[in-house]
Design a protein around this nucleic acid. Structure first.
Lengths: 132, 132
DNA sequence: TCTTGACCTTCCAGTAGATGGAGGCTGCAA
DNA sequence: TTGCAGCCTCCATCTACTGGAAGGTCAAGA
C-alpha cells in the first residue's frame, strides 16, 4: 500500500504518517521507486496510534502502549496504570476547563451585550471581580 | 518597578513578561541602565492579561480584549461576542475530554490489571472495540 | 575598595504534534 | 507525449512559553 491508501484507511493524514515515521513510531518499507510501502501490520499500527491519540494519549504514551502491545510477556497492570494516570490527567483538565467555563459564563451573563461601553467582562478581567 | 516586582505582583514569570513585550502586548519604558521600567498601568495590563489567559483566551484574543478595554467607544456586544465564542470552544473541549474519559474509563474498568498479558485496553486500541 | 550574589539584559534553542508549502520525481491514462 | 495525481524531501510555521548561556548592574558586607 502507498501512503495515500493507508491515510484513507487509518484516517490519518499522509503528513502525519510521515511524521510518525520520522519519530520512529512506524517503519514502513520502501519500494524501488522510493515510495513508502505499507504492510497490513503498518496499517494496524497506524490505526492503533490513531485511536490512542484520539483518546488523548501523548506520543510518548503511544510509543509505550505500542511496545506493550507487541510484548507478549507484558502485564496488563502496566497498561492499566498508564491508562489510569492518563485518566487522571483528563479529569484534571476537565476540572480546569469547567472552572474557566463557570467563571466566564458568569461574566458573560452579567454583560448587556449592547452598543454601550460598560462591560462586566472587561471589568472582571481588569479587577478580578465583576461586581466591584 | 523592575521586572521582578511586576512578576511577583502580576503572578506572571519574568520570562513571560519579556515575551509579552516581544509580541507587543505591553511596552514598558527603559531605565538608563537598560532595565525595563514598569508603570502602574503596565502592571494593570499584565494582571488583565494574566486573568484573561487563566480563562483560556488565546494571546490574540487577549490582544483584542485589551484593545477593547482601552477603547472607550467600544460596544460591550463585541466583548460579549468574543467571550461567548470562547465559551463555546471551552464547552466543546469539555465535551471532547468527557468522551475520551468515558471511553477510556470503560476500557480501564474492563482491565484486570494483573500480571497476565490479556488486556482489554490494548485490545480496544487495536480493534476499536474492547468486547471483540 | 573589593567581592559576592541577586537581579537584570539579550539571544538562541527547544517543547508537542503536527501542518503548510516549495521544488522536484514517478506512474498511469488518454 | 503530455498532463496530472501522487509521492518524495526539506524547511518553516504554529501556540505560548520555558531553559539556559553569556554577560552587564547594583547594593550590601568585609
Amino acid at each position: 500500500m502507498n501512503i495515500g491508501d493507508v491515510a484513507v484507511r487509518s484516517g490519518l493524514p499522509a503528513k502525519t504518517i510521515r511524521y510518525y515515521e520520522d519519530i520512529g513510531l512506524i517503519r514502513p518499507h520502501r519500494s524501488a521507486n522510493g515510495y513508502r510501502c505499507f504492510a497490513d501490520t503498518d496499517l494496524h499500527k497506524l490505526a492503533f496510534l490513531a485511536r490512542a491519540r484520539a483518546l488523548g494519549f501523548t506520543i510518548e504514551d503511544c510509543r509505550t502502549l505500542m511496545g506493550l502491545y507487541e510484548d507478549d510477556s507484558r502485564a496488563s497492570a502496566d497498561v492499566k496504570a498508564l491508562a489510569q494516570e492518563h485518566l487522571g490527567k483528563i479529569a484534571e483538565k476537565i476540572g480546569d476547563l469547567e472552572a474557566m467555563r463557570d467563571t466566564l459564563r458568569e461574566l458573560v451573563e452579567c454583560c448587556a451585550g449592547d452598543d454601550r461601553p460598560e462591560c462586566p467582562i472587561l471589568h472582571g478581567l481588569a479587577c478580578g471581580d465583576p461586581k466591584v
